[in-house]
């Protein structure tokens, strides 16, 4: 008897990340023929992104794909993924992933299956060229940059004024120069046509993917051993294949925006290290301050620079 799982995504179907999740669904359905099937029913038009994990916990749906940092308040361990520098496969090997599974289970009451789409970074994009200082770093002090909660702390640490603006207002804001730039993942920069105004990108990128595939605990426990094995194997495989896909997409996007005239400002040497330290420390410090007993272990498993 084939089991069907109903799944939702935090993003609308046309966006890149939802298509990535569709790949996972296709992989499971291919491998699980006659045993297990995933029915990808929809996204934010059914459940607001922040409330989706509640729907999984309650069993209204069986599976969900979306950012773990939406639940940072309940599960400070999500910052391990924000601040991670190892690959998802390494974290599976060294036990980091198992700690995360425990955190998802204890704090959110859901079963963590996969850490998807790792390998992409966030970047700071600006309208105008930021001033270079003597030591090779950039003078970002006082710049107004559109920000999101996960990198607000990092921005403030560099003297940036984080501006909180809802997505639909950003296009007009950039067009009129209401703020000086925005933080955004590299591969979605063309989604909202922001790249028309954001002509400068600061490299290196920082942070990592926080995208999780989770399942309702009771549903997971009720699955046959065969179904569980298929899901576990496909999850590990999907972590690798989604990362490979991300790398290809980043490469293509990077080439395209450069061809279209975006200037990439690359920090080198000490300035680069200082920049990355500030970024990653902001995530790890946030987790440390939360007082979670998993801090030391997670930092050891997920962070090595």
């Amino acid at each position: 008897e084939e089991v069907t799982l109903r799944a939702i995504s935090a993003f609308p179907k046309p966006l890149y990340f939802s298509q990535s999740f569709q790949n996972f669904v296709d992989m499971v359905n291919e491998r699980g023929k006659g045993v297990i099937r995933i029915d990808y029913i929809g996204g934010p038009e059914m459940f607001p992104p922040n409330q989706q994990v509640d729907a999984v916990r309650r069993g209204v749906v069986d599976m969900q794909y979306g950012p773990a940092t939406y639940y940072l308040g309940k599960m400070p361990e999500a910052d391990a993924w924000v601040g991670m520098t190892v690959s998802a496969a390494e974290a599976r090997e060294n036990g980091g992933f198992a700690i995360m599974q425990k955190a998802f289970s204890e704090k959110l009451n859901v079963e963590l299956l996969a850490h998807a789409d790792t390998g992409f970074n966030f970047h700071i994009y600006t309208l105008k060229e930021p001033k270079k200082l003597e030591d090779g770093s950039l003078d970002l002090d006082g710049l107004k940059i559109r920000s999101q909660p996960i990198y607000k702390g990092f921005f403030e640490g560099m003297g940036i004024i984080p501006v909180s603006v809802p997505v639909p207002d950003v296009y007009t804001g950039l067009e009129r120069g209401t703020f000086d730039g925005s933080g955004w993942p590299i591969l979605a920069i063309k989604d909202l046509s922001w790249d028309k105004f954001l002509r400068f990108r600061i490299d290196p990128g920082f942070f990592n993917s926080d995208l999780a595939v989770v399942m309702n605990t009771a549903k997971w426990e009720g699955l046959s051993e065969e179904a569980k094995t298929i899901l576990t194997e496909v999850s590990a495989e999907y972590e690798k294949s989604s990362t490979a896909a991300i790398e290809a997409t980043i490469e293509a996007t990077d080439k395209q925006v450069r061809d279209e005239g975006m200037t990439v400002i690359t920090l080198e040497g000490a300035a680069r290290e200082k920049f990355l330290d500030a970024a990653y420390d902001s995530a790890w410090n946030r987790m440390k301050e939360s007082g979670t007993p998993n801090y030391e272990e997670l930092r050891k498993d997920y962070y090595s620079r």
Binding site: P12, P14, V167, P168, Y171, T172, D191, L192, S193
Partner: peptide, 21 residues
């Protein structure tokens, strides 16, 4: 323009937001 809905439509339909506005 300005139109909140046009911006969202542009991004979901993967068409140029500026041109749509």
């Amino acid at each position: 323009p300005p139109s909140t809905l046009a911006v969202l439509l542009g991004s979901l339909a993967r068409i140029d937001v500026g041109a749509l506005l």
